[in-house]
């Protein structure tokens, strides 16, 4: 049996909101360590890897491994009915045909209970080896989101160029072009405002702006985003959860 209680529904609300526009059907794999998901978007360009460790829950138990096949849009409809500050408990039997979601208001005696039908989802599972990256950028997630939104107004592609201590986001469109350069910066008082660039080799990669604009829907999850890049390899965009992560692997565009 699975029983996982979040102190606040807001964490799962944000996670589902970040994923629902990229993937429609997901298997949520529940083990004693927590809940993990691997899913690929319909155009097969973006891979999402979610890990909500047991430590992200107030209480968590899962006696046997359980797979919950969930339709993200339906899950989102139910999740939106709960308040962000409600306690949220996920409950499923050992061979479940439904996931139960219980929202409890902390101040009043109000309990809302929902049941979501499960689906049998046949999904490929890809093995993600430990990847080597030539550049790692840690930056404020809100700053990254604004750059992705701004650059998408010009072009469907966004170029990321990293040299010693700066990252250049470049967009070449039909009616004009634009770029934003950010440099390494340490804010000792507000560390979440800092930009850190770790570089082994310079990077020049191009990505679909549409996918980056789906990835930035994770912004409310974490104040910083970590971007890991290597030539001709998928880039990794990572948002840390209190215990776990939401990762996006995005295939770069390149000429053969």
């Amino acid at each position: 049996m699975l029983e996982g209680k979040f102190d606040e529904a807001s964490l799962l609300k944000k996670v589902i909101d970040a994923m629902k526009d990229s993937v429609k059907l997901c298997n949520f794999n529940c083990t004693e360590n927590g809940i993990s998901v691997q899913a690929i978007d319909d155009s097969r360009v973006l891979l999402i890897s979610l890990l909500i460790e047991a430590g992200s829950f107030e209480d968590y138990r899962c006696d046997r491994n359980i797979v919950l096949g969930l339709e993200m849009e339906s899950l989102n409809k139910i999740i939106k009915n709960g308040n962000a500050s409600d306690m949220l408990t996920l409950v499923a039997e050992d061979s479940p045909d439904a996931l139960n979601l219980i929202f409890e208001d902390k101040r009043r005696d109000r309990i809302a209970e929902y049941s979501l039908k499960l689906m049998d989802i046949d999904q490929d599972f890809l093995k993600i080896e430990d990847m080597k990256f030539d550049a790692v950028v840690n930056m404020p997630s809100a700053e990254f989101a604004k750059i992705c939104r701004d650059m998408k107004t010009l072009s469907e592609s966004l170029q990321i160029i990293i040299t010693k201590d700066s990252v250049k986001f470049n967009s070449e469109g039909d009616f004009g072009s634009g770029s934003v350069v950010i440099k390494s910066f340490t804010d000792l008082e507000k560390t979440e405002e800092s930009v850190r660039i770790t570089l082994e080799k310079p990077i020049n990669l191009t990505f679909g702006a549409k996918y980056l604009n789906d990835i930035i829907k994770s912004t409310p999850l974490a104040s910083q985003v970590t971007i890991k890049l290597c030539d001709k390899q998928p880039a990794l965009f990572e948002y840390q959860l209190p215990s776990g992560y939401l990762r996006f692997y995005l295939a770069p565009k390149f000429e053969d």
Binding site: I40, S43, R44, V45, L46, L47, D124, F125, L126, K127, I128, E129, S157, T206, G208, Q233, P234, Y249, L250, A251, P252, K253, F254, E255, D256
Partner: peptide, 13 residues
Amino acid sequence: MPQPIISQFFLPH
């Protein structure tokens, strides 16, 4: 610029 699919980069589990 061509857009490769993500599974080209990873092995099936």
